[in-house]
Amino acid sequence: MPEKLKVELVTAEGRVLSEEADFVVVPGKDGELGILPHHISLLTPLKPGEVKVVNDGNEEFLFVSGGFVEVLPNRVVILADAAERAEEIDEARALEARQRAQAMLADNRSGDAVAALERAVFRLHVTEIRRRRPTRSGPKN
């Protein structure tokens, strides 16, 4: 049996995910990071994007709007700023946020507005993936 990674995704509000995986992809600040078991210990910030957890051929996507990943040889801890299950993402809200962010961008190109837009876009993106390819529903926590 191949070795597995223990993946944990925690936010300030609680633990969102805690399960075994073969392979994890996280949106690192400097680009996507694929993590397999026995990865070197690593600590790096994340940018808004999707986390992909692969286990026995099943793929699960989660959205993070930033945070950190702590990689230990057989454990990956994602300290997410806000993690939501993709099906929980309210598409209308994301769209609204995007419009708001765009309106803000129009008069002021501030860093906050750019980040808000980035988040909104990624939320929509993950929702689309969900719709195209329904995967198994995650374990109930």
Binding site: K29, S41, L43, T44, F68, L72
Partner: peptide, 26 residues
């Protein structure tokens, strides 16, 4: 644990400390 930091230790600290404070207040 001997961590690798990416991009650099001080960048990680810069991002980490505000969240440390936030977690305390929360």
């Amino acid at each position: 644990v001997d961590f690798e930091y990416e991009p650099e230790a001080r960048d990680v600290i810069d991002a980490l400390l505000p969240r440390y404070v936030e977690a305390q207040v929360y």
